[in-house]
Each structure stands twice: as structure tokens, then as C-alpha cells.
Design a protein around this nucleic acid. Sequence first.
RNA 1: GGAGAAAUGGCAGAGUGGUCGAAUGCGGCGGUCUUGAAAACCGUUGUUCCGUUACCGGAACCGGGGGUUCGAAUCCCUCUUUCUCCGCCA
Length: 425
Amino acid sequence: MLSLKIIAENPDVIIDRLKVKNFDASAIVERLAGLDSERRQLQAHLDTSQSAFNKLSKQIGTYYQQGKKAEAEEARDRSAGLKEEIKRLSPELADIEARVKELLLQLPNLPHESVPQGKLPEDNLLVRQGGEMPELQPGALPHWELARKYDIIDFELGSKITGAGFPVYKGKAAKLQRSLINLFLDSAARAGYTEIIPPIAVNEASAFGTGQLPDKEGQMYYINEDNLYLIPTAEVPLTNIYRDEILSYKDLPRRLTAYTPCFRREAGSYGKDVRGLNRLHQFDKVEIVEIQHPDRSYETLENMTSYVEGLVKLLGLPYRILLLCGGDMSFHAAKTYDFEVFSAAQQKWLEVSSVSNFESFQSNRMMLRYRDEDGKNIRPAHTLNGSALALPRIMAALLENNQSPEAIHIPPALVPYTGFEAISL
RNA sequence: GGAGAAAUGGCAGAGUGGUCGAAUGCGGCGGUCUUGAAAACCGUUGUUCCGUUACCGGAACCGGGGGUUCGAAUCCCUCUUUCUCCGCCA
């Protein structure tokens, strides 16, 4: 959510910048400006009436105490008009405020000035590429066939127990999955992130805070009876730790990491892109989150990106980093780097991480602020997060890229965790 | 799931209808003292919105929402959360 103040002060800048996201903000901005001045006027009026009413009430109290019953009753009659006015104007103000909020929620975050204009994934900017492209032997199998061949991931069994998109990992794949999680968590801890085990169901306020609500409720599994949402990412509980908080500038940055299962309904996405592990309803992910001072958030974005790059390198996967164009970015992000690894048997780039700076977009929603060094100014902090990493597609690429006709080889960095060097028959 | 108690500022904790945004203590910040620090003493210390934006003035907020009243932290209703006991249970 953008702040009303900034919109009112720089309407043209807002409209201009949002064009990069292919969003025409002019109508909303104009309506906001009108509503805002209406709101100010009404607030001033209401405050004055309230003030007069409060004075009268006190006066009445004094009269009663002095036994001046007639004066008290006369003053009470006089206050009736004010009371009625307050009763009439208060809901009007609340209504305007609600309308302002509703409009504010429709505006996407402003893209950072370094974000390229563009509409499609093809307009994303290749930032870096690394790792060696594996040369697979003829007859190399996609991961879903490797999964069947070595009996390590069972999609049909998941279907039986739950439904499509809920695979069952068995034996060495289960161990490999857990090894990846441990490797990622240990690395994050070494890099200075504090490990958290958060709830994986969240309430409405939390889902609103990070931007899943409203509008994206279709993405989340909802527990109707308790009004809770299963998290689509650990970003939600982690960032909401600081909801309604005022941190000291000394507390910044706050750096957190968590492993959680993630749940996504992904309604309406079917087809061959979703085979195997490529797109699931439940998957594992290690997330990193950082709450940072606005002056340093872009430095942090680069650092987080380098950190994630280190993980992909550690696993020996061919990867590329993309700077997303305005049109491909999420509604909430100001700047996003996507990580893709190459899954050799599918001959496909798979997105395994998305690292974003949200600036104050989430902070404004959840009142996450910090008190600056001068001790006086309270401002929204910047929030950032990134996958480090999402497991299934990493698993897919590892299985495919490291296969030989008789085995799948485990990258050396993982062997201390798995305790085995290969998956074979 | 059943019974009971509670929810007040960063924390602890007073306040049972008016002058209460709220005593007191701790903590934080500034100062005096000190070579420096501690102690002691003095001062200061919530958030949001509106108006002015130097200073300052006004409004709202005592878990959330609603009600009674001229007036609510205080009374009533409701929801949520926490604690204690019982039951069930990984």
C-alpha cells in the first residue's frame, strides 16, 4: 500500500512510475486527491464539534456538582445539537476513510527506477548466468520418470492420500529433501539469519499485511471454521512478526529465516508445465526475510541476491538471474530478481527463487515502522524477502542434471547431510 | 470440550462515572556531579489523525466491536486472547 501523503504530494510522479508496471493510475489518484481533501475538511469540522461538545459536558458536570440544576439542564439541551451532528458526521468520515483505503489497495507498488519497462517475461533483463550446462546422455529421463525408476517420489500415492499436487517423497528422496532443508537453514544461520519456526496457518490480519488479502484469497487454502489461511510462503508469518511494531533504528536490520511447507491452490493452472515437481499444491521452502532501513534496503536486496546465488552455485546447478520487468513483477514488489535453474532433461528453466524489495508497501499495510536516529521521526521500514530456496524444482534439476544411466549423483555439498553419494537401484 | 479469573503506556502495576492520556516504580533519553563510569539528584519520555508546521492548538485511542449516559479506562452486551482448575490428547 502506498501512503496517501506521498500520492497527494506527487500525483504525477506516481502516475508516471506506475506506467512501468503498465498500470494507469490516473483515475484512482485523482479520486484519492478529492477524497483526501474531503476527509481533511470533515475531520477538522468533526474535531471542532467534538471539542465544543466535550467542553459542554464538563460544564454540565460542574453545574451538577454546584447544584445548579437548571443551568445543567439548559446546557444539556444545548449540547444535543452537537451530539447529533457528531453522530451524523462520524460515520461519514469512516466511510470516506474506508473508500480511501479501498482505492489505496488498488494501487500497485511503485517500481524502482532501475526496473525495465516491459510486459512479458521476455522483457526481463538477464543479469547474470552461471554454472555449467550438463551434457546428458541419450535416453536421459525427466525427473518424474527418474522418480518412478528409483521409486523415490510417488505422485499417484500423493493423489490417493490427498490429491494431485501433493507428492510423497520416499526413502532417499525424503532424506535428500531434508538434507536440502538443513543445508539451506545452516547456510542462512551462518549468513546471520535467525532461524524461526513460525505457524503455517495465519489469520486475516497477517494475510492482509503481506498482501495476500484481499484479491489473492484464491491462491490460499482457507480453513473456514477457524478463519485461517495456510501460508503460501513463510514470508507471511515471518514479516508479520513485526506487524504493529515500532523498531529502533538500532534494531535494523532484522534478518530471519524459516523452513516451512507452503500451500498454493494455484487455481486454473493445468497443462504440461505442471508435470512432476514443477508445480505443486504443497511444497517445502526455506525463506529469508529482512526488515531494513530505507537507506540500505537496495544494498540488502543485492546482498540477498548474492546469498541466494551462493546456494545455487553450491549445488552446482546452471542458473540465471533475471531482473524482472515492470509487467512481470508482482503487485507488491518494487524490484525483483528471479532465479532460474536449468533442468536438463526437460530442457527448461525453472524458477527457484524470487528476491524482492517491497520498500514500504507491506510496512504501510501492517504498520511496521522504525524510529530514526533523531529520535523523533517514525517511518515505515522496508521489507524484503527471498526464497533460499524453493525445494521441488531444485530437486527436479538435481535429479535430472546429475543422472547417469545407473544412478543419480548427489552434489558434494549435500553428501555430509544425506550420508549417501548416489541414488541407485 | 466444561468451570472460573483477567486484559491499562516499553515492562510492572494503581485507577469502579466528570478536572484521567491516565498515579507510582522500573526501563529509555537529556542534564548536574565525576578524569571516565557507576550511584545519587533534576528534567523528560505513547500512538494515529486534523490545523499550523518555529513553537503550539484540537480530536481519537486503557484487548476488538457495540450500547447506556450530558459525560465511560470505570456500567451493560458481544467477540478475541491469556491464566488457573477439570476432561481429552501428540
